[in-house]
C-alpha cells in the first residue's frame, strides 16, 4: 500500500514536467505572437528617443528571434529562474511571491470559508430534507452559484463600506495608520472580510449543494441502513459512514476549485484593490510585461497541478478502495 502510494505520487510528479513545459510554450507563443510592442508600452506618453528604444530592446533581449528567446526562457525556467520584469526590473519570482501572499490569503480564506460553511450547510440540509433550512440552503446555493462575483463584490462594498461604513472598501491594510502586533492582523482581517465573502460565495454554494446531494446519496445506501440496523449511534453513522463517503466528490470539487479561485480572485482583487496576483496580471497586460505574464501562468499552473495532485491523494486517503495505476 505505502509503496504503491509512493509510486503513484512519483508517476503523477513525472507528469508535471511536460505539463509545465506545455503551459510555457502555449503562453509564450500567445504572448509573443500578439500585436503590440512591449518596448513601446514601456515608454511614456511622449515620443521616445530612438537610442532609448533600441537600448531597451537589447536590454530586454527582444532583439533576438522568437525560438532563441523561447529556448533561452526554457533554459532559465529549468534553473528555477523566471527572469526579470521588463517594467520593474526586478526578478519575476520576487514580484510574484510578494503578490502571491495576498492572493493566497484571500483565496485561502475564501476556500476555507466555502469548505467549512458549505459542507456544514450541506450536511444540515441533508439531515433535514425538505425542512425550511433545506429549502433556504438550496435557494441560497442557487443564488450564490449564479451571481457574478464582481457584481456581488460591488454590492457588498456599496452596502457595508460606503453605506454602513462598517468595513474598509479598499486595499489590504489601513492607509494612514501603521499598526503593529495584534492590531496589524485585525486590520488585515477587517479588510479581508468583504473580498473573501464575495469570492467564497460561489464555491460555498457548490460545496453546499454537492455535500447535500452526496450526503443524501450516501445516507440512502445499503451500508448506512446496515449500520443503523446494527444499532450504531446516529451521529457515528452520519459522520463516519455517511460523511466519509459523501465527501469524496466534495473533495474533488474543492481541489478543482483552486484553479477557479485564482480566476475569481482576479475579479475580486480588481473590485477591492487587493494587491494580489490577479491584479498584477491585469496591470502587466497593459504594460506588456512578458516575463511577469509568463511567470504568473507558470506559477498558477503549478499551483493547480499541485492542488490536483493533493486532491487525488486526499481521495486516496478518504477512499481506501482506490487502486493506483
Amino acid at each position: 500500500m505505502e509503496a504503491r502510494l509512493g509510486r503513484y505520487i512519483l508517476y503523477r510528479l513525472a507528469q508535471v514536467i511536460p505539463l509545465v513545459f506545455g503551459v510555457i510554450v502555449v503562453t509564450f507563443l500567445i504572448i509573443h505572437l500578439a500585436p503590440g510592442d512591449p518596448v513601446l508600452a514601456l515608454v511614456g506618453n511622449f515620443p521616445a528617443p530612438e537610442e532609448y528604444v533600441t537600448r531597451l530592446r537589447q536590454d530586454l533581449g527582444l532583439d533576438k528571434s522568437l525560438p532563441v528567446q523561447l529556448l533561452h526562457y526554457l533554459r532559465k525556467v529549468a534553473q528555477g529562474d523566471l527572469g526579470y520584469s521588463f517594467a520593474q526590473r526586478r526578478p519575476v519570482l520576487n514580484i510574484i511571491f510578494e503578490r502571491m501572499g495576498a492572493t493566497l490569503l484571500l483565496a485561502g480564506t475564501a476556500w476555507l470559508l466555502a469548505a467549512v460553511l458549505g459542507v456544514a450547510m450541506g450536511i444540515l440540509s441533508s439531515l433535514r430534507q425538505y425542512s425550511l433550512v433545506d429549502h433556504a440552503t438550496t435557494v441560497a446555493a442557487l443564488i450564490g452559484f449564479s451571481v457574478p462575483v464582481f457584481w456581488l463584490g460591488q454590492l457588498l462594498m456599496l452596502i457595508f463600506s460606503v453605506g454602513l461604513g462598517w468595513l474598509p472598501p479598499q486595499g489590504m491594510q489601513s492607509i494612514r495608520e501603521e499598526y503593529t502586533g495584534l492590531r496589524y492582523y485585525l486590520d488585515i482581517g477587517a479588510h479581508l472580510i468583504l473580498p473573501a465573502l464575495a469570492l467564497s460565495t460561489r464555491f460555498l454554494a457548490i460545496n453546499a449543494r454537492l455535500t447535500r446531494s452526496s450526503m443524501l446519496d450516501a445516507l440512502g445506501r445499503e451500508f448506512i441502513t446496515t449500520a443503523r440496523a446494527k444499532g450504531l449511534p446516529e451521529l457515528r453513522v452520519i459522520l463516519h459512514h455517511g460523511l466519509r463517503n459523501a465527501l469524496l466528490p466534495v473533495v474533488t470539487v474543492m481541489g478543482l476549485n483552486v484553479g477557479f479561485l485564482f480566476a475569481g480572485s482576479a475579479l475580486v482583487e480588481t473590485v477591492f484593490g487587493w494587491p494580489g496576483v490577479g491584479r498584477l496580471l491585469f496591470d502587466s497586460i497593459s504594460t506588456r510585461d512578458y516575463p511577469i505574464l509568463l511567470g504568473i501562468f507558470v506559477v498558477v499552473a503549478l499551483a493547480v497541478i499541485i492542488a490536483n495532485l493533493l486532491t487525488d491523494l486526499a481521495y486516496a486517503v478518504l477512499d481506501p478502495r482506490i487502486r493506483y495505476k
Binding site: V162, P169, I175, R176, G273, D283
Partner: peptide
C-alpha cells in the same frame, strides 16, 4: 497609495482614507 481602480479612488477619498 496605489489604487488601480479609478472609481475606487473616489470612494477612498469619500471614506477619508486618502
Amino acid at each position: 497609495k496605489m489604487i488601480p481602480d479609478v472609481h475606487a479612488r473616489a470612494i477612498a477619498l469619500e471614506t477619508g482614507q486618502v
